[in-house]
Design a protein around this nucleic acid. Structure first.
Length: 412
DNA sequence: TTAGCCCTATCTACCACAATATAGA
DNA sequence: CATCTATATTGTGGTAGATAGGGCT
């Protein structure tokens, strides 16, 4: 029995969500990620069956075990006899796939207990392509259309072919030609425009849809038309950066605040910029490490404008592996090759939708981020917890203090 | 409609120092 | 290449002050 689901704490965790940095059971995965259109975009994968705390990236067909990068290295290092084991790349998915879909994706890997479940059947169109998919770059033009058209796409990895979920995460952002051949999903017209198209005022669509019960419209109580005025062009990568839970996990309180405000500025700056969204993988421009700011570092957060200028970060190049992308934590949206708002065909046709989504995602991440603080060094926290202070400031050992966390007393 | 004031909420800098990272011998 | 030493940098929490925004007159 592995670790328990971070959400319910009852079921065994099977899925790792990078954005939430959480291990979830299948049930909670669907519940959590069907809450709204934003959570649907979270990139998930299987949990490493060895350490049971990291996202699995490969499946060892010999040992029949899913492994994260570290466990893969440990188990299949060049010096070990297991190094010749055949391994399959485990792909990520987003959206709200049904058990049937998951079974299709990982048919050779796991058995899913909800084979007859159809709760999210209508969301099949939201299935997202994988991070290392070689054939599904929607920005690439017509060649990708066929892949997007099918519910599934076959990607060829080094050692094996794996079926992975496909199509863009947001159906309404597909170009019309991409939608025409959807096979597994509901007809294009029936796809939930409600998800990402707030302008399409169809409240009735929400009534019977429990997926949206928890959607906090107070937080996103936007006058979208005003936001359209604010954001003159489609947003690019700043929101994708915010999307990433791994980055969040590395930020301290101060950093979170700065990153928050900076990225808000970035959003607005982008909105006022006349530059078109750059479909190039801006994700490669920033790794989680590069996003860590310091008091002395002038550049705290990279902006989309910087991304446009081909600024290079962290040595992530076009030769980066899928793992590099995974590890850097940058949103899989770009990595998957289909940033919904950078699609050449969608940029003009759905600009307000893209902007609305960007705003909503920003607000959601901001909202979530404020309630979280990660302590990177427990030892330092332990020290700070017992240090005496004067007006909140640390004082030298032996000096007079007005606050002692241990005794709650004052020396003066 | 605008300006000014008040109140509340949020953000930021500050402090000491052990832990950690880096450079050089 | 490994080890040691010296120096530089980082991160931690509570508080005061600054700032932003809303409501009211």
């Amino acid at each position: 029995m592995g670790y328990l689901c971070d959400f319910c704490g009852e079921q065994r965790s099977m899925v790792y969500c990078r954005s939430d940095a959480a291990c979830l059971c299948l049930s909670c995965d669907r519940n959590v990620h069907s809450a709204n259109a934003l959570s649907k975009r979270h990139s998930r994968t299987l949990v490493c069956e060895r350490c049971e705390s990291q996202p699995a990236i490969v499946r060892c067909t010999e040992e029949r075990v899913s492994l994260c990068h570290n466990c893969d290295l440990n188990g299949h290092g060049v010096s070990t006899c297991s190094s010749t084991h055949k391994r399959q790349t485990i792909n990520c998915y987003s959206g709200c796939p049904s058990a049937v879909e998951l079974s299709s994706i990982w048919s050779s890997i796991v058995q899913f207990p909800f084979a007859d479940d159809t709760t999210c059947e209508e969301e099949l169109g939201l299935m997202s392509i994988t991070e290392n998919s070689l054939t599904t770059c929607s920005c690439g033009g017509s060649e990708s259309n066929t892949n997007h058209g099918s519910g599934l796409v076959e990607t060829e990895t080094e050692n094996a072919n794996v079926l992975v979920g496909s199509s863009s995460s947001l159906p309404e952002l597909k170009s019309p030609t991409q939608n025409v051949s959807l096979q597994t999903a509901t007809p294009v017209d029936a796809l939930p425009s409600k998800i990402c198209c707030p302008q399409a005022k169809e409240p009735l669509l929400f009534e019977d849809d429990g997926l949206y019960e928890d959607f906090d419209m107070d937080e996103v109580d936007l006058n979208l038309e005003n936001y359209e005025e604010l954001f003159g062009v489609t947003l690019n990568s700043s929101e994708d950066l915010l999307e990433n839970g791994g980055i969040d996990s590395l930020f301290t309180k101060k950093e979170i605040s700065r990153e928050d405000s900076n990225c808000q500025d970035a959003v607005l700056a982008e909105g006022s910029s006349a530059q078109p969204a750059n479909p190039q993988p801006a994700c490669s421009a920033a790794s989680a490490d590069s996003m860590i700011s310091s008091k002395t570092e002038p550049v705290l957060c990279f902006t989309p404008r910087q991304a446009h200028s081909n600024l290079s970060f962290s040595g992530l190049t076009g030769e980066s592996t899928a793992y590099d992308h995974q590890d850097c934590g940058v949103s899989s949206m770009h990595l998957m090759g289909e940033p919904p708002w950078c699609h050449p065909g969608s940029e003009n046709s759905q600009p307000s939708v893209s902007r609305s989504n960007a705003v909503m995602r920003y607000k959601e991440k901001k909202k979530n981020r404020k309630f979280e603080k990660r302590v990177r060094y427990a030892s330092r926290k332990a020290r700070a917890d017992v240090r005496r202070r004067v007006k909140g400031r640390f004082v030298k050992a032996g000096d007079a203090y007005d606050y002692d966390p241990l005794s709650q007393t004052r020396s003066c």
